[in-house]
C-alpha cells in the first residue's frame, strides 16, 4: 500500500503524517495520531459518531480520506475545550445530563457546535433536524436537545 505525505492543521496545530492512500481521516486520527476522542460507530456515514469539522464544514471522518486533509483545517472533540475551560456546549451537556454511555457525545458536540456557528438561535425543530445524523441509543435525545438549546441561549448571552 502506497503512503502519501500530508500537511494539515488539527485543532489549530500544524500536523504532518504519512498515511496509506485508502485510509480514512477517522483511521488517521485514531490509529496514527492517537486521537481516540473521535469514535467509530458504523464506518459508513450513518451514525455521526466520527463527526469532525473540515474547513468549518461538518463531515463524517469515516467518509473522508486522510489525504483529503492536505492543506485544510480539521477540528475534533479534543480541541473543543479551551485548555482548562470547557466549551459552553460541554458545560450544558454536563448540567443537563445529556449523555449516558457517552460514545455518541463527541460527535454530537462537534455537530452541535457546527450548528451554533451557523445558527446561533435555532428552534427545537432545527436542532432535531441538524442532529438527525448523530445517532444516540441511550437518551432518547430529549436531554441532548435541551442542552443544545440552553447552550445556544447562554452563548447568545455571552455575545450580547
Amino acid at each position: 500500500m502506497s503512503h502519501s505525505h500530508v500537511s494539515t492543521t488539527i485543532n489549530g496545530q500544524a500536523v504532518q503524517y504519512a498515511c496509506p492512500t485508502d485510509a480514512s481521516l477517522l483511521e488517521v486520527l485514531r490509529d496514527q495520531l492517537g486521537m481516540t476522542g473521535t469514535k467509530e460507530g458504523c464506518g459508513s456515514g450513518d451514525c455521526g459518531a466520527c463527526s469532525v469539522s473540515l474547513d468549518g464544514r461538518l463531515v463524517c471522518s469515516c467518509l473522508v480520506l486522510g489525504v483529503e486533509a492536505q492543506g485544510r483545517t480539521v477540528d475534533t472533540i479534543e480541541g473543543m475545550a479551551d485548555k482548562n475551560k470547557l466549551h459552553t456546549l460541554q458545560t450544558k451537556f454536563l448540567e443537563h445530563a445529556a449523555l449516558q454511555c457517552g460514545i455518541c457525545t463527541p460527535g454530537v458536540l462537534v455537530a452541535a457546535r457546527s450548528l451554533l456557528e451557523k445558527n446561533p438561535d435555532p428552534t427545537e425543530q432545527e436542532v432535531r433536524y441538524w442532529l438527525a445524523g448523530n445517532l444516540c441509543r441511550c437518551t432518547g435525545y430529549d436531554k441532548i436537545i435541551r442542552a443544545v438549546l440552553e447552550a445556544a441561549k447562554a452563548m447568545r448571552e455571552e455575545q450580547a
Binding site: 485514531r30 486521537m35 481516540t36 476522542g37 473521535t38 469514535k39 467509530e40 475534533t76 472533540i77 479534543e78 473543543m80 475545550a81 470547557l86 460541554q90 451537556f93 454536563l94 448540567e95 445530563a97 449523555l99 457517552g102 460514545i103 457525545t105 463527541p106 458536540l109
Partner: peptide
Amino acid sequence: QRLQRPDGIDKVTGRARYGAD
C-alpha cells in the same frame, strides 16, 4: 440531588477510553 457524574468531563472532552481506544 441532580449532581454531575464523575465520568462526565472525560466523556465530553473525548478523554474517556472505550473498547476500541
